[in-house]
Design a protein around this nucleic acid. Structure first.
Lengths: 175, 175
DNA sequence: GGCGACATGTAATTAGTTACATGATTAT
DNA sequence: ATAATCATGTAACTAATTACATGTCGCC
């Protein structure tokens, strides 16, 4: 019975009405996807699974290779609420740039600088993306709060690179 | 041949001399474990695997249920460097508290407040842990840089809860 | 000599990713 | 009508977690 965060999230996206796997994947991609990685395959795979458990039902499209739309059942809605009410699952952190930095002494300073610079570029692009997103969430406080987290996080990474990591890599490319 | 981040990390910890699985796990726990989750089982499982590939060799302890010490081989050292030089793997973010916040409207304000308060407590404890750790890393700039990241991150979470999320949960417990 | 904490390892399960094989739709 | 893109789904594989079964050591 117990949902995990991924299936919980999928159900959560059906709250606002029936959707196809594709729809759900797209919506995840522009929202929770920024802080909760889910692959397309998972969405396609879990939906029939959830249907088997009665948390979701196929609203349309049964044929082979045909577009299937899923709707949340009353049971599914309950399962979602139960899951959400449990509180967040234990966090597993995985921050690759810190792993590289941790072993930074084993790397050529040049290469480390390069890696940090690329990370900086990525995180800056991310920040730009958030700025575009912001107006759309003006009237959605909870989504807005997660966006604000993203903004702060991206800023943190950028500043940390500028103030801490890059100076440390030092000699690499003084330009 | 290609290492992944977990095996790369394990090899990285053998750079400073031969160790047992237990040793490696302990050291990971107080260092990279803060930003790169690895389970004990992985360490125990990967080491014999790496030995099979010649990246590591059993230095002592062959008997059943006996303490085995592993040492890095020349090949292993090379594989580690190659891995590190590749740069960080793609990041997969998983921040549970944001998932709960995202769906915050579906939760009783009281419950959400509770969850945020608990998260705040955890992150504050984490911050305290980092302060204790700091003096030990005074002469290790790269490790120190990752610690500084951790400090900033924990602070970010705390401030975000105070300034953004908790006010939003609002009505819950005004005390 | 037995209890508790520390340590070691494997097996079973679950989750997540990558690669592949098609199908449907739309613009030219 | 056909290429390009968008969409759908499954299968194979890899990684990660959880649960379990022992073992060893120090000490009371």
């Amino acid at each position: 019975m117990g949902l995990n965060a991924t299936t919980g999230t999928i159900l959560g996206f059906l709250l606002s009405g029936p959707k196809t796997a594709w729809d759900i994947d797209q919506r995840i991609g522009v929202s929770v996807g920024h802080f909760w990685n889910v692959t397309r395959s998972q969405v396609y795979r879990e939906l029939p699974q959830l249907a088997g458990e009665g948390l979701v039902r196929v609203q349309s499209g049964s044929g082979k290779g045909e577009r299937r739309t899923y709707a949340l059942t009353a049971q599914g809605r309950m399962a979602f609420r139960r899951w959400l009410d449990e509180g967040p699952p234990a966090e597993t952190r995985r921050i690759p740039i810190l792993l590289v930095t941790f072993f930074g002494a084993e790397l050529e300073p040049r290469r480390l600088t390069e890696i940090l610079d690329q990370m900086r570029a990525e995180v800056t692009a991310e920040l730009d993306g958030y700025e575009e997103l912001a107006p759309l969430l003006a009237d959605r406080p909870f989504e807005g709060a997660t966006l604000e987290f993203g903004r702060r996080y991206a800023t943190l990474v950028r500043d940390w690179i500028d103030e801490v990591a890059r100076p440390l890599a030092g000699g690499g490319t003084e330009n």
